[in-house]
């Protein structure tokens, strides 16, 4: 079941279109990555899902119901640009924001106590936000986002501003929340974290969605039958043994050991290729080169951008 479906969302501002017919389906209890370069329309989409702004056309459904103010309590939002009331005490502020999310004061207090202890920050309860370091403020903000146990967590660039140790704490917390049944939508530029965490992604560029699906499928679809072979032996013999099964790409030798990339010819299989080189050289490793999300991201975005430029040129 999808916890959230966005259908044909269009959002226009005076001079440009921020979102052009974007549709998304976010399966429940998964981690969904919203990717795209700066200015692609990610924040606009996130604001629409948070009901901060409304779309010009299109609809959003939360658990198959049309998105409405009552769903606010089921959503937790950590914006990219973070901030709290500087002059307000940490605990008081967290209580206030919890109540705005519809929690009862007593429940909120209990929950906050749990989180403050977990993050070892209970000593800060009466401190003013301006007295905290930036990293501490980020922790408080994360707690504020998750304390009402939302079904859907929306995190805009969650790791920016955290040092590696705290980023790791947050990452583990995200996985924890998923295990407890929450769905997480996060937007990021950090492709490493996408491969590590995300089940599904959507890539948005220039107000349009260009790909979406599960990370596994997308990588499979985008693989280019490239293999890497490490071997010792005669380079010439190796090249000859490729026969018609593959074509030599980049290669380099480090002492005895040679490393070569082979592009499999269409119609051949990896086994045929391996069999034919086995007799010529001594194989140390043989593996398929699957493109990283980073490669796919750059490839897709630059593809679309060059098409865009061309069509502009023709016009």
């Amino acid at each position: 079941m999808n916890i959230l479906s966005a259908k044909n969302i269009v959002k226009r501002y005076a001079t440009h279109t921020a979102l052009d017919d974007v549709s998304l389906d976010i399966p429940a209890q998964s981690i969904f990555g919203l990717l795209g370069p700066n200015g692609a329309g990610k924040t606009s989409l996130i604001r629409i899902i948070n009901q901060i702004t409304g779309p010009d056309s299109g609809e959003v459904f939360f658990e198959n119901e049309k998105l409405s103010p009552k769903h606010v309590e089921q959503i937790g939002y950590l914006p990219e640009e973070r901030g709290l009331y500087k002059k307000m005490e940490v605990g008081e502020q967290a209580l206030y924001l919890a109540q705005l999310k519809g929690m009862k004061k007593a429940d909120a207090k209990k929950k906050l106590k749990y989180w403050f202890e977990k993050f070892e920050i209970d000593a800060w309860w009466h401190k003013k936000v301006e007295e905290l370091s930036k990293g501490m403020q980020q922790k408080v903000q994360f707690i504020v986002t998750v304390m009402h146990e939302p079904k859907l967590l929306i995190l805009d660039e969650p790791f920016s501003g955290f040092d590696p140790i705290n980023a790791n704490i947050i990452k583990n917390e995200i996985l924890n929340l998923k295990a407890q049944g929450a769905t997480i939508l996060f937007s990021t530029h950090n492709m490493g974290s996408v491969e590590e965490l995300c089940d599904n992604i959507a890539l948005i560029n220039r107000s349009r969605k260009i790909i979406d699906g599960s990370v596994k499928d997308i990588r499979k679809e985008n693989k280019s039958n490239l293999f890497e072979v490490e071997f010792t032996g005669n380079m010439m013999g190796f090249t000859n043994s490729l026969w018609t099964y593959g074509k030599l790409g980049e290669y380099k030798a480090e002492g005895e050991l040679c490393k070569a990339q082979i592009q499999l010819t269409p119609g051949s299989t990896a086994n045929q290729l391996l069999l034919s080189v086995l007799s010529a050289v001594e194989i140390h490793s043989f593996k398929e080169l699957v493109p990283s999300m980073n490669d796919i991201f750059i490839k897709k975005v630059s593809e679309q951008n060059s098409i865009g430029t061309q069509s502009n040129f023709i016009e």
Partner: peptide, 17 residues
């Protein structure tokens, strides 16, 4: 202005109009 420049406004607007 305080709410705008401290950026807390986005968090609050995800709860209220």
């Amino acid at each position: 202005m305080e709410e705008k420049t401290s950026r807390i406004v986005e968090v609050i607007l995800s709860s209220v109009k």
